[in-house]
């Protein structure tokens, strides 16, 4: 991959929660308009890693970071970086669908509104576009004023994706987006990720190795806070280089 295609790159990233080190010297290049999957056992640091990218770890007390996370060549931890703008450009979808307890419409309009869009027509457009992009418009187009929490789990998660798309990000971080969903809803989200990657750079943390294999172009394997192996997904799953990667993906752990 050419360096001009790298959208995000972590360089020697270390992270401590208090005195416990959660990330050790992690360096990963994330290619533009590709899906990069992060896999590894629980507590290996993969979720912690993506939370460094949009600085969600800022919210956690006692969290300390060294190293760099370059977004379009610029370290997101530089002093004059506006976190609000950063998080607007790097969206995030969480493990559990977390729609706000308001209407479907207001959920999608939430982001644009806090970033200053007030005009009704403009909001209507954003809501429709986002829901369409998240493959949810056909299901909820007629019931936009219904509470978002009335939707099924899978619909809620797509709503959360639509909500993220509404602020027009460049990157979307998925933190185990399907772990609370049934297989059909999971398949729909995976299809959606495949479509979205044409317009967005996607990073997905997943416990489900088959999911990583299905949706991603590149895969990084984490173990105990270290990034053990990074490569093309087809290589990682057919012939990993590192023994521990092989042991993990073939279920020979511990």
């Amino acid at each position: 991959m050419g360096t001009e295609d790298i959208e995000i790159e972590s360089r020697n990233l270390n992270l401590w929660y208090g005195s416990a080190q959660a990330l050790k010297d992690v360096s990963i290049p994330i290619e533009k308009n590709r899906v990069t999957a992060l896999i590894g056992p629980s507590g290996c640091g993969k979720s912690t890693f993506i939370r460094c990218i949009n600085r969600m770890n800022d919210l956690i007390k006692g969290c300390r970071i060294t190293g760099k996370v370059l977004f379009e060549g610029r370290d997101v931890y530089e002093k004059d970086v506006d976190v609000v703008v950063l998080r607007k450009r790097i969206g995030m979808v969480f493990q559990k669908p977390n729609p706000f307890p308001m209407s479907i419409y207001d959920n999608i309009a939430y982001g644009p509104r806090i970033h200053g869009t007030q005009a009704k027509r403009e909001l209507d457009e954003v809501v429709e576009d986002s829901l369409k992009a998240a493959a949810l418009w056909d299901e909820v187009g007629g019931i936009l004023d219904k509470p978002a929490l009335d939707l099924s789990g899978g619909q809620q998660q797509r709503l959360c994706i639509a909500r993220t798309l509404a602020v027009k990000p460049d990157v979307i971080l998925f933190d185990e987006p399907c772990s609370a969903l049934d297989p059909i809803s999971t398949a729909r989200i995976e299809d959606l990720i495949n479509v979205l990657k044409h317009d967005y750079t996607i990073i997905i943390v997943t416990h489900n190795m088959q999911q990583a294999a299905r949706v991603s172009d590149h895969t990084a394997f984490f173990l105990l806070g270290e990034m053990i192996e990074f490569g093309e997904t087809k290589q990682i799953f057919e012939r990993p280089v590192e023994k521990s990667t092989e042991n993990y993906i073939t279920g020979r752990f511990g």
Binding site: M56, V84, G91, F100, P101, G111, I114
Partner: peptide, 20 residues
């Protein structure tokens, strides 16, 4: 989760508290 959802969209702390 709700607070994180709001903050991840770029909302400030006060926006998150007041609106979510």
């Amino acid at each position: 989760d709700l607070k994180e959802g709001s903050v991840a969209l770029g909302a400030t702390k006060w926006q998150t508290i007041r609106q979510v």
